[in-house]
Nucleic acid binder design. Structure first.
Lengths: 126, 126
DNA sequence: CGAAGTTACATGCGCTCGCATCTAATGCAC
DNA sequence: GTGCATTAGATGCGAGCGCATGTAACTTCG
């Protein structure tokens, strides 16, 4: 098989693999817990950071999400009462994002679904 | 490391990897050749199938793209003169999609960019 | 044949995304 | 201090996506 056909196969395989998992995560997290995949990922990072209250930009950089998309994701989470924004004292342009009790609870529940899907799809191979 | 943290790492790594390549493909294919990643992928499959003229549904199934998204992708390609739709004789609900000469030319050019990006990102590892 | 169900594709709708831009706060030069 | 460049985040905009639905062509069953 040519070098080129091999690369194309590799890429299509990666695409299929990613999309299958991402699509399932997005659908099931939303159906069962009312959060999108990106929203869950945001909660997940906030829950892990806990008291080190993250800045918007730290979240965006870690998540391969554009700054504007993250801004809106946080806005949705805030509207749902799952996170809070707080002004940064030192630099009043900055915004700290903090997970709420409700957010932690939701994250805990959704985390089970998340883990189950990853186990199912990443367990055997790779 | 816990089973769970390991899976999460694996998933984030897969996500990052996919997004980096997909984003670069999308951007560079558009900038240099005026086609999106999905449009190129469609052309690529049509060019390979050549005279076996594919049905919409065959394309959609192979590409992990919803039926509606594919319908619009083909519509854009048709508007750009890169593919043609033809009614299927046996089943007049069906639509055959065929690449045009212009489409083949565009595919050839864009294919170089595509191959270069895949080589760069999938060459060493994996 | 004719009505009801199914299938293939198109399309209205609402959503999220990235890009470009806006606003406000900060930093830096002089 | 005053002015200009930079930075953090919000937001208007246009684009593509998936879901639900619409339309037209088949199919099945009486």
């Amino acid at each position: 098989m040519s070098q080129r056909a091999e690369l194309t196969d590799q890429w299509r395989s990666l695409t299929l693999r990613y999309n299958e998992i991402a699509c399932k995560l997005d659908r099931e997290l939303d159906e069962a817990h009312g959060v999108s995949m990106n929203e869950f990922e945001t909660l997940d990072r906030l829950a892990a950071a806990d008291r080190e209250s993250l800045r918007m930009q730290d979240l965006a950089a870690a998540m391969y999400l554009s700054q504007s998309a993250l801004s809106r994701t946080v806005a949705r989470l805030e509207r749902a009462g799952l996170v809070e924004r707080a002004l940064c004292e030192h630099d009043r342009r900055g915004v700290y994002v903090k997970i709420t009790a409700a957010g932690r609870a939701r994250h805990g529940e959704a985390g089970k679904t998340h883990f189950a899907i990853l186990t199912e799809h990443l367990g055997a191979d790779d």
